[in-house]
């Protein structure tokens, strides 16, 4: 090819580019908006906003139980995770830092989606709308949740489980906690209620309760079959208790008897071990009590706060939530 032909081709290419530039109208870039409240998101994203609004993330600042535990945030150590600065600002995988405005919105849209340049991380690129979203894979990485949720080791527990290994069992945080609204149509997006321990159906799917006979005695087996982390996890206030009672056929059931507690205790609870049940593991306990020689009932309860009003006479049916109940006869 001679120089003249080469120059001709170059000129033609530049000409085509010039024509394209003249006639192509790029999407008009939206004017940057100052994001001062997650309420601003509701206008264009009512569904995820309403889902989030009903979530515990949205109540992380206002929840009465939380406020009781931290003395109305008089313990300001709690602010870091309960009203965090945007994760993209502090850096994915880094520990979060507290913010000084819109704390009442808790862990809000801005905390997860706002990027350093004021754009919003999402699943599509679109510079022409107000929040100028940019598709960001980081949003779905477990490290994104780690700044808060690994403070008690939840992400590390997941990493040690089969769910973190590449392959058919792989499931990340959002697979369970932000499932697709319509599993048949992922384009409808993910559910932003981010359900967890407050959703008893999710808790029920996480564990199984079985009672089997071992040499004539009842053996209770609890398996962590569905949680990708310990059961329970994250919050020290969470606990799950196994209770049992003889079934003597009378109309008035006997009081529940405590068998075991799954919980990671607070630091000041000296001498109490961490008894959480890791992902995929099972706990087997044989009830040796003479009262368990006949028919018995065994139940697994879940508690959002760890203590019973009267530790000597706990009333799990009133003070906690039933997860599973099983009857057994020798």
């Amino acid at each position: 090819m001679n120089a003249r032909a080469l120059a001709g081709m170059l000129v033609a290419a530049l000409g085509a580019w010039a024509v394209f530039s003249i006639y192509h109208t790029p999407a008009k870039a939206a004017v940057a908006v100052a994001w001062e409240s997650s309420n601003q998101c509701a206008q264009c994203h009512p569904l995820p906003f309403d889902e989030w609004k009903s979530s515990w993330h949205a109540q992380s600042w206002t929840d009465v139980e939380v406020r009781k535990q931290n003395d109305d945030f008089g313990n300001s150590d709690c602010i870091d995770c309960h009203a965090p600065q945007p994760v993209f600002e502090t850096g994915i995988g880094n520990r979060v830092l507290p913010r000084s405005t819109r704390r009442i919105e808790g862990v809000d849209c801005i905390a997860c989606h706002q990027m350093l340049d004021g754009r919003m991380a999402g699943t599509v690129d679109n510079p022409s709308v107000a929040c100028r979203p940019l598709a960001q894979r980081e949003l779905v990485r477990p490290e994104f949740c780690a700044g808060c949720h690994n403070q008690h080791g939840t992400i590390d527990q997941w990493k040690a489980s089969k769910y973190a290994q590449p392959g058919p069992d792989f499931q990340d945080c959002i697979a369970c906690h932000m499932p697709y609204r319509d599993p048949a149509d992922p384009t409808k997006g993910r559910n932003h209620t981010m359900h967890g321990g407050h959703d008893i159906e999710l808790v029920r799917r996480a564990v199984t309760l079985e009672v089997r006979s071992i040499a004539g005695a009842p053996q209770v087996v609890v398996r962590n079959v569905g949680a990708g982390h310990n059961f329970p996890t994250d919050e020290r206030s969470r606990a799950s208790d196994i209770f049992w009672r003889p079934l003597d056929g009378s109309d008035t059931p006997q009081p529940w008897r405590k068998l075991y507690r799954f919980r990671n205790p607070y630091r000041f609870e000296v001498g109490q071990p961490n008894t959480e049940l890791p992902a995929g593991q099972a706990l087997e306990l044989t009830i040796e009590d003479d009262a368990a020689r006949g028919a018995i009932e065994v139940a697994l309860f879940f508690k959002l706060t760890p203590y019973y009003e009267d530790p000597e006479r706990p009333d799990p049916e009133r003070e906690s939530i039933l997860v599973h109940r099983v009857s057994w006869k020798p």
Binding site: I22, P26, A29, R119, P127
Partner: peptide, 13 residues
């Protein structure tokens, strides 16, 4: 001419 006719995007904050 092409350069001046293309609409420049709004500056990114």
């Amino acid at each position: 001419c092409a350069g001046s006719c293309s609409e420049s995007p709004a500056p990114v904050p």
